[in-house]
Amino acid sequence: MERLPSWIRQHVAAIRAVIVMTLVLGAVYPLVVTGVAQAVFTNKANGSLVEKDGKVVGSSIIGQNFFDKDGNPDKTLFQSRPSAAGDGYDMLSTAASNLGPEDVLDVLPDPDGADDAAKEGKQSLLTQVCARSKAIGELEGVSGARPFCAPDGVGAVLKVFPALGTVTRAVSVNQACPAQPFVAEYQGVKVECGKPGEDYAAGRTVPIRGNVTDVKVPADAVTASGSGLDPHISVAYAELQAPRVAKARNVSLDEVKKLITANTTGRALGFMGEPAVNVLELNLALGKE
């Protein structure tokens, strides 16, 4: 049999390599890894699923929302922290918001905007935090006030003109007219409300801290985790919700606090991070009482 040309032999060798590597890495290796995972880490390999009455109700490592039929926080249950993953705790869209501490200026909704994005506007990270804090304060019956937040739940930020020198104009850019600005004047100049569609880029950005010294709503209650899937909340946030849950369930506050303690995990390896409470497991424990 005549020897095949070298270029054909090279192609045959390449095809053989593809077939072998496909079988090894695409079939054998996944099967081995899956078998080891199922044998050694059965629960975790299957998603750390949590069941109640024989029905899967969630995962102990993936957060979820606990809303009523109208889409509002269920007052009988503990609430999770915010999520930036899709519409909330979407495992296919796990992500953070990618907004940083300097994101303090809203894009005000403009009914006359050129497209849907302009008409809807966009909230800054600061306003998102302020709005969440205000809503949680109202839900839990405490003050939702925070530094750099206006009473109406938007970022307390001014644009002053000119950017350098004596101020001649000041605008509360996150409060759309006809809203009353959170502060009446700045350096002797009357503060205006923000006008949708107006360009304030030339002004100097001035966040106003306010006189808030005692923040009742914890940071994790108003900020999303890096993955958007964190199933835990801080002990402080759990304790903030305890009176509301106890009242809604007509049980004693001490009983609810005991459940919080029982469902609190310590620091990783004894020194990393802070103690945390798994919201799903805590809510399931409430149902056992």
Rank of each mutant, 00 (worst) to 15 (best):
A150Y: 01
G63D: 03
T94H: 02
V277S: 07
D112A: 14
A246T: 03
V160K: 04
P5T: 08
A39Q: 14
A17I: 06
E198A: 15
L253K: 14
E102M: 05
G47Q: 12
N263M: 03
N283H: 05
G63K: 01
S48I: 02
E185N: 11
V129H: 08
Y186G: 07
S83T: 02
P5V: 07
G47S: 03
V215R: 04
A14M: 11
T94Y: 01
P82K: 02
Q123L: 15
G194W: 02
P73F: 00
Q64H: 02
A163L: 07
A236G: 06
P5Q: 12
A242T: 12
K122Q: 15
D110K: 03
Q38G: 15
I208F: 06
A117G: 06
A202W: 11
A224D: 10
L164E: 15
V12G: 10
R249M: 07
M1D: 02
R209M: 10
A45E: 12
T127G: 13
C177R: 13
N72D: 06
P151V: 08
Q123Y: 11
L108E: 10
T213K: 14
F66V: 00
H232E: 03
R169Q: 13
P101A: 14
V24C: 07
W7R: 09
V189L: 09
D230P: 01
Y89T: 02
C130I: 13
A221T: 05
E274N: 12
A84N: 11
V33A: 12
A176W: 04
V206T: 05
A285Y: 00
L259G: 08
G54K: 01
A262E: 13
F78S: 04
A179Y: 07
F78M: 07
N250C: 05
V157N: 06
S93K: 15
K258Y: 07
S80Y: 00
E2D: 05
G203Y: 05
N43M: 03
A285G: 15
S252P: 05
D90P: 00
K247H: 01
V183N: 04
V206L: 09
S80G: 03
A170Q: 08
P109L: 10
K69D: 10
L269F: 12
A179C: 09
A276G: 06
E198L: 13
D112I: 08
L164G: 09
T168W: 00
R267S: 11
L105G: 03
A170E: 09
A201H: 11
V18R: 13
E140M: 15
Q180W: 00
V173F: 05
A285K: 11
S133G: 15
Q175K: 07
N46A: 15
V107P: 01
V154T: 14
S143K: 08
G287A: 02
T127C: 08
G203W: 09
K122N: 13
G100E: 08
S234F: 01
K69F: 03
P82D: 00
I136T: 06
T42D: 14
T265W: 11
V279I: 00
L139S: 06
D103F: 04
W7F: 11
A246E: 02
D112Q: 14
C149K: 09
